[in-house]
Design a protein around this nucleic acid. Structure first.
Length: 806
DNA sequence: CAGAGAGGAA
DNA sequence: GAAACTCCTCTCTG
């Protein structure tokens, strides 16, 4: 305790010396303050996580302030503010809209189901609030106004503490190097006394660098009703002259002697950015990262503007106004559901900054898409867009331009080809105005973290539909990219017709006795078990039934199966096209094209390739037969596949999302975990235990016990063969495939399938037939099955039609 | 264009 | 709770 006290006293003394209100910092050291905050405010979070599993409701009643008396007019106020920072809001309250607009700025949405929304105040959310222009006082006053109960002292103290220290230091980029900058040298001295920060310092001088401070201007977001946007922002600025939008300016007023026009800085190593940002936040001096692009004379301007027809939707505007509020570009993350126009947000941001932009995507395919979207929505000269992928190593010729590439390209640790190395040098050697990170939720992966160090960018914009990971790395994004600036409310968007309305259902399928016996016999959550529950004949029939039903309604249907074995079984048995990782590129294209244009092809089967990496045409119905454990992201991503349906504005139009679940298996538990995110977004999952009319059908697959037994046998043969094959390979081909790794397994599986069909004999006709087509497909040559032939000819027809018509 | 090698997701 | 496992990407090489 004594050393701590000493430290605290020192800090307080320093604070006094530096002319701050020592009350602001309390009697606590930075570390203590942080610990204190964490203690009080992360409890709720932990509780929620642990308790939620046992009981859906009890966590709500822990740690609350139920003993607080309601204000007399509580009924007209929309929300409760809990002393731990949790906020519960009624969505039916007249003040809801107004309160929601405010809450989204200052708190994290946790759950937005139909009647009640839950938010929580966090350090990050409050930092973001301040950086967007809310003052500590305004936050407290407005919360008090909306709250049915008087704000607790904890919450008030938390808000004050979190917001008071904000905006005093910035992280900036000069000549591709990172600097910590402040108007007040004492702040920097204070940061440098922190061992972590000090260890990240790059320049060896003792003193600080001094420069003249830049001016602040006003900007409009392009694509919004330009003028209107500009005046609005100007008005906001005028209406709240002392709002911390001008934190820097107001600080300057405080020590308004001769230091007025000076900023001070020291340099840090680029690779330590994350660490420094994190540390500064921990010690209560969060760094703002803003790019004053209007006054950037060093980097060339890029000639880019939105085309006149590009109209920004209101929520896109809202999101962008967060990013650009004080005429600077602020780093952060924008969360929009798929189909809500993330790309356009990115492009608009690029048009706002008008400097060189680098776009990072997860796949080479979306690189191409980004490029074409840029050309579609903006007047950019196509020569100024360069794609850097395995295929094209172009860089732009001018001084400024847009470079679109993949994460893998930037982070590749292996030796590069000559061209690739040259392009990388180009990327590393220059300053980027804006870095757009598409699918930003992948960035926290160890490898991808590097991109934020390797690419020197003044501002970073992260885009994603699902800010979710099943590991605990999602918080790293706060330091790697920035805080979450905006998160759209899915339900709201679908009510307004920006994305489709979706009916979600979980279909419970009873296991057949044989399948269940076999399921029980194999070890829990083994691959074989997965397949058994995915290929449960009852599920298969339910799937077939639903496909029939929806094809008759004129829906376009996508069926997802994570398990490739099951996928192929389903698709071949039902004579549908399917795509998985091993499907060659041109075949993928052909199938997707047919799905899109050919009225005969209304259903396709996809492995998890369809989650992210395919540019799927519009579909209106989605059936999930097997999935990856409890991945909420996958569920959300899949749902997203039907949100962009063009028919969404038709009267009473609904898209459908079915999860087929085998009863009494692991799938049940996984399904409910998977749905958690969507439920929080306000989707209601209906449970269907019986499909009307299914039992009357005799034409469905696996109708007879004989067929079902055969299916089960195939599964067992295939799976047990897998196990066997591993052994055999270990012996006979051990040396040959010794270093083969994954490739070995793939090759092995194919070969074994071939042998098996011979082994299994004549009574397994269907099996042989399947295997042939499967192999031919995998090899991409040999005899095509009837369906593929048909598909080919229909492609030809479609092409003829297109040629004839156009 | 196949195969190798490396990485991610969960 | 960790670790295996599968599936799928990417890039570079021959």
């Amino acid at each position: 305790m004594p050393p701590k006290r000493k430290a605290a006293a020192q800090t307080a003394a320093e604070a006094d010396a530096e002319g701050w209100d020592s009350d602001d910092m309390g009697a606590l050291s930075d570390q203590e303050m942080y610990d204190d905050l964490k203690k009080n405010f992360s409890i709720a979070d932990k509780k929620r996580r642990t308790i939620q599993r046992a009981d859906a409701a009890s966590f709500i009643f822990k740690h609350d302030n139920l003993d607080q008396p309601l204000k007399p007019d509580a009924a007209s106020r929309p929300l409760w503010v809990n002393d731990d920072g949790k906020i519960i809001m009624e969505s039916f309250n007249p003040l809801f809209e107004e309160a929601q607009d405010f809450l989204i700025n200052i708190a994290e949405p946790v759950s937005r189901v139909s009647r009640m929304h839950e938010y929580t105040l966090t350090l990050h959310s409050l930092f973001a609030a301040v950086s967007v222009g809310h003052s500590s006082k305004e936050i407290i006053d407005r919360l008090e106004r909306y709250s049915k109960v008087t704000l607790g002292s904890n919450v008030v103290a938390f808000i004050k503490k979190a917001t008071s220290s904000f905006g005093k230091a910035k992280i900036v980029l000069k000549k591709t190097l990172s600097y910590i900058e402040s108007d007040d040298p004492a702040i920097l001295q204070r940061l440098l006394r922190d061992p972590t920060v000090a260890s990240c310092r790059a320049d060896n001088t003792d003193g600080l660098i001094q420069e003249a401070a830049p001016k602040i201007g006003v900007m409009a977001i392009p694509g919004t009703k330009m003028a209107a946007g500009a005046t609005q922002i100007a008005q906001t600025a005028a209406a709240e002259p002392q709002a911390p939008v001008d934190m820097i300016a107001s600080l300057r007023e405080e020590d308004d002697d001769e230091d007025v026009a000076k900023v001070h800085s020291f340099q840090i190593r680029s690779e330590s950015r994350e660490e420094v940002i994190k540390r500064c936040q921990q010690i209560g001096l969060p760094l703002t990262e803003e790019y004053d692009f209007n006054n950037d004379e060093v980097n060339a301007n890029l000639d880019i503007d939105l085309k006149p027809h590009a109209q920004i939707r209101y929520y896109q505007e809202k999101a962008l106004s967060k990013m650009f509020s004080n005429s600077r570009a602020r780093s952060g993350i924008i969360v929009l559901p798929c189909g809500a126009g993330k790309t356009l947000v990115g492009i608009t941001a690029a048009c706002g900054v008008k400097k060189s932009v680098i776009v990072l995507c997860t796949s080479a395919m979306s690189v191409v898409q980004w490029r074409s979207e840029f050309i579609k929505w903006s007047n950019i000269n196509p020569d100024d867009i360069a794609c850097f992928t395995a295929e094209s190593k172009a860089v732009f010729k001018g001084n400024a331009g847009i470079l679109i590439t993949t994460y893998a390209m930037i982070t590749s640790v292996r030796n590069r080809s000559y061209d690739s190395e040259k392009a990388m040098d180009f990327i590393r050697s220059r300053e980027w105005g804006l870095l757009i990170a598409d699918e930003v939720h992948v960035v926290p992966a160890k490898m991808f973290k590097q991109v934020t160090y390797a690419v020197a960018s003044h501002a970073k914009l992260g885009l994603t539909a699902t800010l979710l990971r099943e590991d605990d790395k999602i918080g790293d994004l706060n330091f790697l990219v920035g805080p979450k600036l905006y998160e759209a409310n899915w339900q709201e968007l679908s009510e307004q017709g920006h994305i489709a309305k979706v009916q979600c259902a979980e279909v419970w399928c009873q296991m057949t006795p044989e399948f269940y016996t076999e399921w029980l016999r194999s070890p829990p959550s083994s691959p074989k078990n997965d397949i058994i529950s995915s290929l449960n004949p009852n599920k298969f029939q339910a799937c077939q039934f639903l496909i029939d039903y929806h094809e008759k309604r004129g829906d376009k249907i996508i069926v997802f199966s994570d398990n490739v074995f099951a996928l192929q079984k389903y698709a071949l048995k039902l004579h549908k096209a399917y795509i998985y990782g091993g499907t060659p590129q041109n075949e993928r294209m052909r199938i997707l094209e047919n799905f899109q244009h050919n009225p005969e092809v209304n259903t396709i089967f996809l492995s998890k390739i369809g989650d992210t990496s395919l540019d799927l045409p519009e579909a209106t119905c989605l059936i999930q037969v097997s999935a990856h454990y409890g991945s909420r992201r996958q569920e959300a991503q899949r749902l997203g596949r039907i949100l962009r349906a063009k028919r969404r504005n038709d009267e009473g139009f609904n898209a459908f999302f079915y999860s087929l679940v085998s009863k009494d298996t692991d799938e049940m538990a996984y399904a409910s975990r998977r749905q958690a995110f969507l439920v929080d977004q306000g989707y209601a999952f209906k449970v269907i235990t019986r499909l009307e009319g299914l039992n009357q059908r005799t034409d469905l697959a696996f109708h007879t016990p004989q067929e079902r037994r055969e299916l089960l046998m195939e599964i067992c043969l295939a799976k047990d063969a897998d196990v066997e094959k591993e052994k055999i390979e270990g012996d006979a081909f051990g040396s040959r495939f010794a270093n083969g790794g994954r490739a070995k397994k793939g090759a092995g599986a194919r070969r074994t399938a071939g042998t098996l069909s011979e082994l299994s004999g004549g009574q397994q006709m269907s099996y042989i037939e399947y295997n042939k087509s499967r192999n031919s497909e995998i090899k991409g040559k040999g005899v095509k099955n009837a369906f593929l032939r048909k598909l080919n000819s229909s492609t030809a027809n479609a092409k003829k039609k297109a040629a004839g018509g156009g």
